[in-house]
Each structure stands twice: as structure tokens, then as C-alpha cells.
Amino acid sequence: MAHILSPRRAALAQGDEGAGWLDRIDPRSRILGASLFAVAVVACSRLEVLGLAFACSLALLLAARLPIRPTLKRMAAMDGFILFMLVLLPFTVPGEAIVTLWGFTASWQGLARAVEIALTANAVVLALMVLVGTMEPVTLGHALHALKMPERLVHLLMFSIRYIGTLREEYLRLRVAMKIRGFRPRTNWHTYRSYGYLVGMMLVRAVERSERILGAMKCRGFSGRITMLHSFRLTRADLAFGAGLCGTLAVLLLLEFGPWP
């Protein structure tokens, strides 16, 4: 099944030599590692430290031998979202002037704040995509369950993972049906009404599908338990990963909060 959530999997399968070490690390360790890294990086605010943290994420990306371009492209897509805020910051933080544009003064302090946010956001998201985003989505669900996420929330996550692909195909089928009837999206009431009907129809079909799913699950005696497909085990690889991560975080935090100016 071509799944929208794991397009990288296919690319990974071609040359999984290097990614091997990542796959040997317990998914739980990877989730915890990404979370610890995120908290530590968010706690830092010195530009040198954040630059180092971003370099660590890049190193992780290279070490995991992920396809570099698509991964960085995704990261850049996020930057597109926050670009406006970042561009605005130099002009809204008071401080030493760099340049004056149309009566607005950009300050070094504001520029530093913008760089700080960009480095933090990218370092965290890149590490998250490399460590957790490379997992099978179902493994992510099981690992979160093993990490004591509430059972019903894990069920909800698993259902979403399972049906996002299916429902997206249904959406594309409906779009094809609209297209062959001559629908072309424009900025008008007809377009918005048609999209609204499209969404409404998707919801109707989703609920009808869920009734069939419930029937099928009842027939197989579903009791609300999550059966563990994976038995997670901590190995030496996890120890090495944990030690490496803790070392890196210690260096980052020491540089940030250490007794130097």
C-alpha cells in the first residue's frame, strides 16, 4: 500500500546499509531521544549553541543516510510558514540599527531573535523527522503505547494512520468524478459549495465505513486491547545511542549555561 505517511520508506529500502543502525535502535529510545533533544534545544538561546544543535541534527540526517534533498525540502516547507514572522522580527525588536527601510529600522537584536527561532525550530524538526519520522507509522503507535500513552489515544492514532491513505484515495476518486463533470476550481461560490459538498460526502462515507469496520472488529472479538506486534527490547545499540545523546546534550547545555560570558 502506498501510504502518504511513509514516502521515505521506499527511498530507504534502496540503500538501507547506513540506515541499519537507526533501525537497530529501539523505537522507544528514538522517541524519547527526540523529545529530550527538543526540550534541551528549546531551553538554549545562545546562537552558537543553537548552531551546534542544528549541526548535530544535520549530522544525524547524514548518518542515517536518508535521502537528503526530500528531507530538507520538507524542513524548508515549514520555514515557508514562519518566514513572515522571521522577516518581521528584526523590525519589531528594539535595539542597535542595521538598516532603515521605508522608515522602519531593523535591529541586530531582532535579527538575532529571528535566527534563534529559525535554528531552534529546524534543529528540533529535523531530529524528529530523522529519529521518529523514519519509523513505520504502526511501529510509532506501538512504541507510544509501550511508553504509556493512553490506550484509546493510541487506538485513535492507529485508526488515523490506517485510514488516512484509504480516505485520501477516496478523496482523489471524488475529485476525478468532479473533474470529468467539468469542475474547475476558481474563486467563486460554486467552487466553495462544491468543495463543501465534497468534504461533507467524505464525512458521510467515513462514518459509513466506520460502521462496517466496527462490525468486522466485533466479529473478530475486538476487546479494546492493543496486541503488541513488536516486542521492544533494549540492546547495546540503545545504550550507545543513549550515551551519545546524553553526551551531546550535556555539551550543549554546558556551553549554554556554563560559567563563560
Binding site: 485508526f159 488516512i164 480516505l167 478523496y171 468543495y195 467515513a206
Partner: peptide, 20 residues
Amino acid sequence: IPAAGVLSASFFVASLIHVP
């Protein structure tokens, strides 16, 4: 749970729709 799960997947898919 099935209804909530499938609906939550639908809203995820709907958030991928771009409207002109």
C-alpha cells in the same frame, strides 16, 4: 473508537485540500 478514528483520518485528509 472506529467512528472517531476514521473521522479523525478524514479531517487529516481534508487539511491537505487546497482551495483557490
